[in-house]
Simulated scan of single mutants.
Amino acid sequence: MRKHGINMNHIARQVTKDDFLTYDYILCMDESNLRDLKRKSGQIKNCKSKIELLGSYDPQKLLIIEDPYYGNEEDFETVYQQCVRCCKSFLEKYS
């Protein structure tokens, strides 16, 4: 993120019950996340969130965004670029 001039103060957290009632979209990175979130959302009455893979918006059609945690710097750059493409495409579609 620093390489791209993005300041970040990241705090990870679990998706909560309220998230399913608050957010229009919950975008996830891989099929395991998708499956887990859809299962959890099925337990929420009046769930308003649409749960999708962020990669479904990738113009390069790379559906899964691989976790770069155990990779090298190049893997983090690949994921960064993929996320930027997907987010731009998502925002263009819904703006």
Score class of each variant (00 low, 15 high):
Val15Pro: 01
Cys83Asp: 03
Leu54Cys: 08
Arg35Lys: 14
Ser56Ala: 08
Cys87Asn: 05
Lys61Val: 09
Gln60Trp: 00
Glu73Asn: 09
Leu21Gln: 10
Glu66Ile: 11
Cys47Val: 09
Val84Glu: 10
Gln60Lys: 15
Lys38Gly: 00
Cys86Phe: 08
Gly71Arg: 13
Glu73Trp: 06
Lys17Met: 10
Gln14Trp: 01
Asp58Trp: 01
Tyr57Lys: 04
Ser56Met: 14
Arg85Lys: 07
Ile64Asp: 05
Glu31Thr: 14
Glu77Val: 10
Arg39Gly: 04
Ser89Phe: 04
Cys83Ala: 14
Tyr80Cys: 06
Glu52Met: 12
Thr78Pro: 00
Glu52Val: 02
Asn72Gln: 11
Leu27Glu: 01
Lys40Tyr: 09
Gln82Cys: 08
Asp18Gly: 02
Ile11Cys: 09
Gly42Trp: 03
Ala12Leu: 05
Ser49Asp: 01
Leu53Val: 10
Lys17Pro: 00
Arg85His: 09
Ser41Asp: 07
Phe20Ile: 08
Tyr69His: 14
Asn72Arg: 08
Asp24Leu: 01
Val79Cys: 13
Val84Leu: 11
Thr16Ala: 12
Phe76Ile: 08
Leu63Val: 13
Cys87Pro: 00
Lys88Gln: 14
Thr78Ile: 15
Ser41Trp: 00
Cys87Met: 15
Lys38Trp: 03
Tyr70His: 14
Gln81Ala: 07
Ser32Lys: 12
Thr78Gly: 00
Leu53Asn: 06
Phe20Trp: 01
Thr16Glu: 15
Leu63Gly: 06
Cys87Thr: 15
Lys40Gln: 13
Gln43Lys: 15
Lys61Arg: 13
Cys86Arg: 06
Arg35Glu: 15
Asp67Gly: 10
Gln14Ile: 12
Asp75Thr: 07
Asp30Ile: 09
Cys86Gly: 05
Glu77Lys: 15
Cys83Ser: 14
Leu37His: 07
Asn33Thr: 07
Ser49Thr: 02
Cys83Phe: 05
Val15His: 01
Arg13Asn: 10
Asp24Arg: 08
Lys88Tyr: 14
Thr78Glu: 02
Tyr57Ile: 05
Ile51Trp: 03
Asp75Tyr: 02
Ala12Met: 04
Lys45Gln: 13
Asp58Arg: 02
Cys86Leu: 11
Cys28Glu: 05
Asp18Met: 09
Cys87Leu: 15
Gln82Leu: 06
Gln60Tyr: 06
Gly42Arg: 05
Arg85Asp: 11
Cys83Leu: 11
Glu52Trp: 01
Lys50Met: 03
Glu52Ile: 02
Arg13Pro: 12
Glu77Ser: 11
Asp19Trp: 03
Asp58Thr: 07
Asp67Asn: 15
Phe20Asp: 00
Leu27Phe: 02
Asn72Asp: 15
Asn72Val: 05
Lys45Tyr: 10
Ser89Asn: 12
Ile51Cys: 07
Tyr23Thr: 11
Asn33Ile: 03
Glu66Phe: 06
Asp24Pro: 01
Tyr23Pro: 04
Ile26Trp: 00
Gly55Trp: 06
Leu34Gly: 04
Asp58Phe: 02
Lys48Gln: 11
Glu66Met: 08
Phe20Met: 03
Arg39Trp: 05
Phe20Tyr: 15
Thr78Cys: 01
Tyr23Lys: 03
Ile44His: 04
Asp24Gln: 13
Thr16Ser: 15
Ser49Trp: 01
Asp67Leu: 11
Arg13Met: 09
Tyr80His: 15
Ala12Thr: 10
Ile11Phe: 06
Arg39Gln: 12
Lys48Gly: 00
Tyr23Gln: 04
Thr22Cys: 02
Glu77Cys: 07
